[in-house]
């Protein structure tokens, strides 16, 4: 059988094609690829598993309900009711964390408190592009027009950041005294 060698070679080549396909496919294509479509199905779960940083609109209540009952009630009835706590402070997960054993939430870091006028200016500095109905002021001119001296933390001396309206009398004068 002088041709045995050639037959074996042919068989080898024929076998090599499917084997290399299997090997390369195994290496190149991840396990869950193609389950739902042309992508890795596990990727969806990985996205869902990403830790949440910000809370929802109720996430401060559970703890601060007791300590800051007035503050919360005050905010809920004022003009800043729609402004989320986390916009002015910081994301809740930087401040609290579930305890590793009990799962109960515990404070881990001090919450950020920003008193700078720059915070207010994000939303209230006068800009042509803002809707006209939105309350806005030229910060520096506004403070001077209220007979106060401008400084970094001046806004919160007159306005309560949790309920900022000063349109009622009485409240107005109270603010002015503090700011001078």
């Amino acid at each position: 059988m002088e041709h045995t060698k050639h037959i074996w070679r042919a068989v080898l080549i024929i076998l090599l094609v499917p084997i290399s396909y299997v090997v390369i496919h195994h290496i190149a294509v991840p396990e869950s690829f193609g389950v739902y479509g042309h992508y890795r199905a596990d990727s969806v779960k990985e996205f869902m598993d990403t830790p949440v940083i910000h809370g929802d609109r109720e996430s401060c209540q559970s703890c601060h309900e007791k300590q800051n009952k007035e503050l919360l009630a005050n905010k809920a009835k004022g003009k800043h009711a729609t402004v989320p706590c986390e916009n002015c402070h910081d994301a809740v997960s930087f401040h609290v964390k579930p305890d590793s054993k009990t799962g109960e939430l515990v404070k881990i870091e001090k919450m950020v408190i920003v008193r700078s006028y720059r915070l207010c200016a994000y939303c209230h500095e006068y800009l042509e592009a803002r809707p006209n109905a939105f309350p806005q002021v030229k910060c520096k001119e506004h403070v001077i027009s209220q007979d106060a001296e401008f400084s970094e933390e001046v806004c919160v001396k007159c306005h309560d950041p949790h309920n900022p309206s000063l349109k009622e009398e009485g409240k107005k004068d109270e603010g002015k005294k503090d700011a001078k």
């Binding site: 830790p51 949440v52 809370g55 929802d56 109720e58 559970s62 809740v92």
Partner: peptide
């Protein structure tokens, strides 16, 4: 696992 978190984070 994140059960503790969802109580604060979701409404």
């Amino acid at each position: 696992v994140a059960g503790g978190v969802t109580t604060v984070f979701a409404d």
